[in-house]
Design a protein around this nucleic acid. Structure first.
Lengths: 355, 355
DNA sequence: CTTTTCTCTGCAAACGTTTGCAAAACAAGG
DNA sequence: CCTTGTTTTGCAAACGTTTGCAGAGAAAAG
């Protein structure tokens, strides 16, 4: 009936001051060890648990952070959420999760609503315009993941180098025409990957065709498979694993063999070895990115915003079963590609490890 | 420098009482419309946002609920999280997310720590012993999903009827020997599904062999595929889609054709049509379950716990490409099975719809 | 035995809201 | 103009902590 016991009740029960009880939890070294023990015993017995709201009000520290993602159902995000939550928990922070449903307005509203209630916000793959992001970053403690706006605190999963490796590898396998199948157009990662493909395809004299599986879903990619297959490319690099998987589904349905007729490389390594054949992809360390962002939020509790920084984690190419030599029936290979980069740099075989 | 403005500052600025400002937001109908407008304008200009902690302390209502899942990376949970978060948001509630990592102790700690800070807790697929669950439910506002303990508030995704349909269907296709490949042993759903298979296989005179892909991962299931194939069954019902998918991966690697040589049926419909062939499965309405749980928490804000209830949402069988007639080379079908139930009850073809 | 220095504990104010109660303002009825 | 009733606003206490400051002892130093 009396509900949960409070510090004041505990204090009354023990005949001591509330401040003493408080200190028994927050600064035990200020107290006589026996007093601490006494309080702890009583607290245990009474089932006392501190009220976070009161604490937050008094200290100004919320004990929580917010995490905003575009679509929790996309397999890229759960591992990120998990890592963030685990690490936050280690730091004594709880995490609020919110899903923007890929909607920029919703995202904006969520940021405004949550920011004042937490010690900081992590916004992943923001769909907001750069100007707005800069504005937000100016007055709120927010760390962005996979969104590169100058003077904000951002941690980026950079796949540029890995894409270069991928193209080098494809080139060595004799591929000359490759496709890039993009995902959500507003996505920073999509733009970054697309231009990486464009840039490095030039150095290997590869011809690249662009496609876009717009909403970035399995079904959208699957529907695109026929056009891709018909375009005459012999290899495709997809924005992410689910698009790669969708394409494979489409190819299988159309009877085109992967990797014999078409090589495919995904990105993000969200599917591990669950495709058949196992998907060659670019593994990224989402866990590290999440932890870095959480750490940033917990670091300068005082300041009203985060100082600009650009933290990069590089992805690595992992070769599995969906990449192979170009089909011998194609035009025979006459000129050897000029390799100005070690082909196996940053390449890893088998399952990517997450540190 | 002054940080975010407070109600008191706003009041001072306008020359009115803090209580008036407060009421402008919480009970505007008590105030003269012009006053409300005045306050709103000033608030807007000053960028005022209410402090949830102060409000929570004053009202005793936290404005947040907690959601505890065993493993957010398991594809069963993200849609549930998403639905819960969306609905909570509609009700003006934020949601804390926590991941127990399949660890009962961690789960217990999380419940204790979170419960006092929120208006209620949703615990999904709890791994805690029943006695402890009853104890928790006694004094905390918690709704369980997929865990059936008497006198607690629980919402269950019941697949019993759908499994009966599945077995009927398999029986009609001529199957006589089926396997059940289980998931996490402590899981209520696993026990429920296993016994459903046992019970209804009897009515169709099916012989069932049991397997367990213990941690419930793709890899564990894949490793099990050979034994399953060697056991002589012609159809398998898996605890969930990821296990079904793992088995399919193993079968593909071993060269056994699905569905020609072996039919497989998954559960939960987490993979939609992303497998090849598209997986026949049992669709469950996780969204409805999540919303029901959120609603329950928001319903009796006063009471210290939830009154016992057992809410059931039934799954439906959805037939796609992994089920087929038993191979003609097997022992020829001699006796017609006795069908005491309409075979197509609750059966649906194609993609499951989520209301 | 004083004085000084520590160690330990208590007092009371603050954090930003909400809300019961009462005062003030206004309108209506006589 | 005085009641009475209604609407609108203000006062002040409360929610459960934390923390600066100061007081009370105890230990150390003289």
């Amino acid at each position: 009936m009396t509900g949960r016991p409070t510090i004041t009740q505990l204090a009354a029960e023990l005949g001591i001051a509330p401040s003493t009880v408080s200190r028994a939890f927050t600064r035990p070294n200020l107290l006589k060890p026996e007093t601490v023990a006494l309080v702890q015993k009583a607290a245990e017995a009474a089932g006392y648990v501190p009220n976070h709201h009161a604490r937050a009000l008094s200290t100004g520290r919320a004990g929580a952070i917010g995490l905003i993602v575009p679509d929790i159902a996309n397999p890229f995000f759960p591992p990120l959420v998990r890592a963030a939550q685990n690490y936050a928990s280690d730091l004594g922070l709880s995490v609020f999760l919110a899903d923007t449903d890929e909607d920029a307005n919703r995202e904006d509203r969520l940021i405004s609503r949550m920011a004042p209630q937490v010690e900081g916000l992590i916004v992943v793959s923001s769909r907001l315009p750069s100007a707005r992001i800069r504005q937000i970053a100016d007055s709120q403690r927010v760390a962005f993941i996979n969104r590169d706006v100058a003077e904000t605190y951002r941690v980026l999963l950079d796949t540029t180098a890995a894409i270069r490796s991928a193209l080098t590898h494809l080139s060595e396998l004799g591929h000359r025409r490759v496709a890039y199948v993009g995902g959500p157009p507003q996505s920073w990662a999509n733009k970054q990957r697309r231009s990486a493909v464009d840039n490095f395809s030039k150095v290997h004299a590869l011809e690249v065709t662009h496609f876009s599986a717009d909403p970035g879903t399995y079904d959208a990619a699957k529907a695109l498979a026929d056009s891709v297959a018909a375009s005459g490319v012999t290899a495709v690099i997809a924005f992410d694993d689910v698009i790669a998987h969708g394409l494979m589904g489409g190819f299988a349905a159309a009877g085109v063999d992967v990797p014999k007729e078409l090589s495919v490389i995904g990105c993000d390594d969200t599917l591990a070895t669950t495709t058949f054949p196992a998907l060659s992809t670019i593994a990224v360390n989402v866990g590290a990115a999440a932890r870095r962002a959480v750490a940033a939020l917990s670091e300068n509790p005082g300041s009203t915003n985060l100082t600009g920084a650009r933290i990069i984690f590089e992805g690595t190419l992992v070769l599995r079963g969906t990449t192979g030599a170009v089909r011998p029936t194609s035009s025979p290979l006459t000129l050897e590609p000029e390799l100005d980069h070690p082909s196996a740099r940053g390449v890893q075989t088998g399952r990517g490890s997450d540190s």
